[in-house]
């Protein structure tokens, strides 16, 4: 859902750019607490994985496709602040090198695909973990539901920005209905990819999943290896 140049007028694009800069600045401060020698390399690889996964458009309905947004996945794997940065780096590279996502719309795209997906996705994830039993299955289930919700949330965010600064003369209601409808379907794909990825990492390195901290503790086997 990369917004191209010209969809949103200049004043709102500039305002969105300012919001995006503020969001990224907050994320940079917060990410310091999430990143250390162990997690920084994983965060870089998570960004690279999201770039790769965003190339994989899957069909959702007649003549329509969708791809992973990745905000929820990144937030669960490496933390919400770092997650915002992961998706923002991907969007910057896509806009500058791959002509994907307008450069004047970079602020809009960071709001929709980095800030909103992380806020909503990670918020839903934490809420669900609070009520679900502490288990690996719960983390996977919460990842699925959180990712599912994050995609229509990003579609709503786009529609709101369109309502304020859209350049075309199309009723907001029509855009909202069509956007949310198709993005619920894309959300299912997002949920499947997110749940598979989170459960795969949980299976081999539960200690590296930021969102499973506390849960993972109780899962780890405390077997001291014999030292030679």
């Amino acid at each position: 859902m990369h917004v191209p140049d010209g969809f949103i007028d200049a004043p709102v694009s500039i305002a969105a750019g300012a919001v995006a800069v503020a969001g990224v600045a907050v994320a940079l401060r917060g990410a310091r607490r999430e990143l250390d020698d162990r997690t920084a390399p994983l965060a870089g690889l998570t960004a690279a994985f999201i770039f790769a996964a965003q190339m994989l458009n899957f069909p959702v309905a007649s003549g329509t496709s969708g791809h992973l947004l990745g905000g929820t996945l990144a937030a669960i794997l490496v933390g919400p602040y770092t997650g915002v940065l992961c998706v923002s780096v991907v969007l910057l590279v896509q806009g500058l090198l791959f002509a994907d996502g307008g450069l004047t719309a970079l602020g809009v795209n960071i709001i929709n695909m980095a800030l909103v997906t992380v806020l909503v996705g990670y918020g839903v994830f934490r809420l669900l973990l609070r009520v679900l039993p502490r288990s690996r299955a719960s983390v996977t289930a919460a990842s699925f539901a959180a990712a599912l919700v994050s995609v229509p949330a990003a579609a709503v965010a786009f529609t709101l920005i369109y309502a304020i600064g859209g350049t075309a003369d199309v009723s907001v209601g029509k855009v909202a209905a069509a956007m949310v409808g198709v993005h619920v379907l894309i959300g299912i794909g997002e949920a499947v990819i997110t749940a598979i990825t989170v459960s795969s990492v949980l299976a081999v390195r539960p200690d590296l999943v930021h969102g499973a901290r506390g849960v993972a503790k109780s899962l780890e086997l405390h077997v001291e290896p014999a030292r030679a």
């Binding site: 191209p4 458009n57 791809h67 350049t167 075309a168």
Partner: peptide, 30 residues
């Protein structure tokens, strides 16, 4: 092997006319 169909936003924009004033990407010759 990814789908080459337009994504959700592209499809909705084209169907509803949201893209009436869209411009070519400034990096299209990258």
């Amino acid at each position: 092997y990814a789908s080459s169909s337009p994504d959700g936003l592209e499809k909705v924009s084209a169907d509803k006319g949201v893209d009436a004033h869209s411009r070519d990407h400034s990096m299209k010759d990258s």
